[in-house]
Amino acid sequence: MEAAILTACADPSTLSGLSWLVCYLTTGKHMAFYGSFGTVLLLLAVTAPVALGFGFAAAMAARSRIWPLSWFGRGYIAIVRGVPDIAFFLFFVIALDQFFEWLRHEVKCPDWDQPVWQGNDFVVCSAAKLPLNNSAQWVHEAYGFSLAVITFAIVFGAFAANVLYGAMRAVPRAQLETAEAYGMTQRQTFWRILVPQMWVYALPGLSNLWMVLIKATPLLFLLGVEDIVYWARELGGSKTAKFTDYPHGDWRMWYFLALLVFYLAFTWVSEKVLNRLMARLTHGQATVGGEAQRKTVGKAA
């Protein structure tokens, strides 16, 4: 199949109509474009649990009785929520990368005598580079991707923390008091009573957060990941015959339309799944839960 396409597409200038389009849509560049949809989905799949983890840790920290920890948790939630995500993305990835390299530098090259900052240059020993200069291209891409995941997770972790913090406090006080009356320790109360109950309160907020996360993915290209918006722009821009076998005018409109359809479809599916999840979570809960179910289904729909 592929070989057939390759030979048929050897000279696109002789083609027209549908066969031209088929050849056009199967160029290596288009393959990269289709692949980038996978990148975005993978990013979402990885980021969501990581961000939830960050959020949970931060919410726990904010509730802590040890004041530096509580202060740290609250500070993180307040500051990251207060800053637009773009501003964060524009400098944070470079900072994070430098931080990791600096850590490795300290471990791997203890007898390095030059400063890490030389004027504008950030210089670590070559063994501390992340990834190493001579590692394969895919390692570089995977590393860039994980930096993007961490950055997204830190930003959305703050929002998740806000939701979870609210949810933890929404669990009726009486439930916790009953647990204490049964002789449970603080720890047991937290893990056995509070955590299982809070999800019902947290889910509407979390599902909205998921929707926001989906819609933040076009900013991925700022983090150096070649995402769907990057390729749509690259493919859609007008091309002159000198640089491509498939010259065309400004087709960005069509490529962005494809992205629009993708996002709408993805949102639609997400809404369906989340509604079902919500119905399941509240299922069998006491009358208050039933009441809550009625309310939250209305909100999320």
Binding site: S126, L132, N133, N134, S135, V139
Partner: peptide, 14 residues
Amino acid sequence: LAMLATAALAESHS
């Protein structure tokens, strides 16, 4: 990832 990167070791600037 770090281990992977290290595994592919070689001299600098190659």
